[in-house]
């Protein structure tokens, strides 16, 4: 069964916290990875690689560039895993 948006958000927040130390409560759908969370491109790649493993999806590098907010990533993962 595919994960719900809320489950994906929580799972993503755990990964972001694990890789960057940013509190899970700061990882909200409207937050920009770069402007709000100050996540650099290498850290973003570590998040993507861990998200791929956790949710069983593949996020091509070209698509990563389009994921500017946490909500974008949640939607992408849900669509890719459904």
């Amino acid at each position: 069964m595919a994960a719900s948006e809320q489950e994906i958000l929580e799972g993503l927040a755990e990964i972001v916290n694990e890789e960057t130390g940013i509190p899970t409560s700061d990882v909200q759908p409207d937050k920009s990875f770069t402007d709000d969370l100050d996540i650099d491109s290498l850290s973003m790649m570590t998040i993507v690689v861990n998200a791929e493993e956790k949710f069983g999806v593949r996020i091509p590098d070209d698509d990563v560039k389009g994921l500017s907010t946490v909500g974008d990533a949640v939607s992408y993962i849900q669509k890719a895993s459904s």
Partner: peptide, 10 residues
């Protein structure tokens, strides 16, 4: 290759 750590080089 996809599982190699993005921070492996640094």
């Amino acid at each position: 290759a996809r599982r190699v750590h993005p921070l492996a080089v640094p």
